[in-house]
Design a protein around this nucleic acid. Structure first.
Lengths: 317, 317
DNA sequence: AAGCCCTGTATGTCCATGACAAATGAATAC
DNA sequence: GTATTCATTTGTCATGGACATACAGGGCTT
């Protein structure tokens, strides 16, 4: 069913088939083929069966292209530039400011593979700031910096894995420890198939937990139909979806629109995350949240609209 | 960029385009087209641009087919049967023996969508038994039963998502709370690309933590090359990989062999999980673990071989 | 200048069809 | 029983054409 992605990673420079490239760049097979047809890049060699084999440098350049396109550049304008030039464009677009010392210290421990120190520092940071501050400042900054470092090749994939695991551990632990459970509103929290990033989802859950809302977290990659069925089953007021920038903005918007058409109007739909940060507008009845603070305001608004001053619901559910 | 998936969800029965069906069934566009060409199903209507529009019943039948194929049926044998017949096949395929009462109670809360009760019962069970017992008995039994129920269609996908999230929460929390950190051996814990199941991995981590070993957990789906690089970076003694039964046994064995050829002999490789439970033998130098208890024995053996009675390593690292 | 509509180009997705490797199952020999 | 061979099934890839939507830039009005 699946062919091996990697044949000889060290010896053979061309070792990624088109499915692997689709997985690692997020560019569809169709897009990869049509770029090759139109622009001449990527220009993979072929194996004995005429199937495309991409090299690691090509894959890396494709990731840079993807990133720049996500930032508003047009493919035809940048596709034939060299990899160093693309890298320069990226660092030019993001001010490349050194991270604040506190973040820097955490990053250093990660790069030094100091697992225990890394975890301990994160924990300290959480204790000192409290969950809300920790999530909206430290974790957000770390995510941003790690993302940059990953693009720039300054961090190994396994370091990023370790980072993700530990932040998950700490956030889940903190969420579980948060006292006020079960008050209104009730929020269903998940992502659509294709969106695997859990940290964004956990950050949202942490903020909601800190604000005293009741979360029903379904993890990542729940098909739309199942969300439709889950919402009434758990009696939620709001369905919140997270889209990292790994997902095309259009896919995020159509997913939201589709869900909107399936859920009753009384159920609010919130969407947020990197893929939607620059979206102009969504379907009517879908709320775009461009930051975690946005979400806190949305939460306040919902409570004003739906709750009496004593915290009771205005209308029987 | 993207065409809308749904035109008229309520009035028009044909409202899913091929991208939406791919996302919700996990069947690729190519597969959907080739099934239509070969078997005549699914047979979607076309919009004014000749693009496929699938109906909800078609989508549901596709999901049943996917489920049966994952459990060993061949597409051509089942694709032209009716939806009720497929449903019957699914419920017939799992023997449906009653779980023990303790497990039954937890399952009931999950099926009743009693989120808080479910979490509370799990927590109680953990407190009463301790981490080791909880993992090797309760979680293992729950996994087994939930897997059966999923095959038999007695449990919704979103319930399974919720189950997975909460067990993760509780296990991660318990692991973090486990006192003895950092003693030998040091174990790198992950799965290969394609293996997404995290719970098996967390169960292993919980047992290791309870036994006082030092874990470096990289989450799921780490490419072999990255494992090769990570092992020396984190100075681990053992690399442990988990394979759920969703992965073909041959793929698991190949992956283990490939890794064995990349790591120095002094690094042990352990493999376990559903896919390997019935495997006869693996490459030389790879240890097959058929149960969590197997792993505890393996851990004891490693300590006898590598540690002095006072807990110091026999050889300087 | 700033806002708006219009129009042409850029771009991603879909289609049809052909081909073939990998997976599976059956049949055979050891 | 266990390994080997062969035939069939099945998913993925390739090609090239088509076209809807998104975007950029010119010309218009305010």
């Amino acid at each position: 069913m699946n062919t091996p992605n990697i044949i000889e990673a060290d010896d053979n420079p061309a070792c990624y088939n088109i499915a692997a490239v689709e997985r690692d760049t997020g560019l569809s097979k169709d897009t990869l083929r049509v770029w090759e047809r139109r622009y001449g890049f990527p220009d993979p060699v072929r194996d004995q069966h005429d199937e495309r084999l991409y090299t690691l440098p090509q894959l890396e350049k494709l990731r840079l292209l993807r990133l720049l396109i996500d930032h508003g550049h047009r493919p035809s304008k940048i596709i034939n530039r060299s990899t160093p030039e693309l890298t320069r464009m990226i660092s030019a677009s993001s001010p490349e400011q050194a991270p604040p010392p506190e973040i820097e210290a955490i990053i250093q421990q990660l790069l030094n593979h100091d697992v225990d120190g890394f975890r301990a520092t994160l924990m300290q940071s959480l204790m000192r700031q409290g969950l809300l501050q920790f999530v909206t400042h430290t974790v957000a900054a770390l995510n941003h910096w790690i993302g940059e470092a990953w693009i720039g090749g300054r961090i190994a994939i396994f370091d990023e894995h370790l980072y993700s695991e530990h932040v998950q551990n700490i956030l889940r632990n903190a969420i579980l420890a948060e006292p006020g459970r079960g008050s209104a509103p009730r929020v269903l929290l998940t992502s659509l198939p294709g969106e695997k990033h859990r940290i964004g989802l956990l950050m949202v859950e942490a903020v909601l937990a800190a604000e005293g809302a009741a979360c029903v977290a379904l993890g990542t990659e729940t098909p739309v139909i199942d969300i439709k069925n889950a919402a009434p089953a758990y009696g939620v007021d709001i369905v919140a979806l997270s889209f990292s920038s790994a997902i095309p903005q259009a896919a995020a918007l159509t997913g939201l629109a589709e869900l909107r058409s399936l859920l009753p109007e009384s159920t609010e739909i919130w969407g947020g995350g990197g893929a939607l940060a620059r979206a102009r507008r969504a379907t009517d009845g879908v709320l775009l949240l461009r930051s975690l603070d946005d979400m806190r305001y949305a939460l306040q608004r919902w409570r004003v609209e739906h709750l009496l001053p004593n915290g009771q619901r205005k209308m029987p559910h």
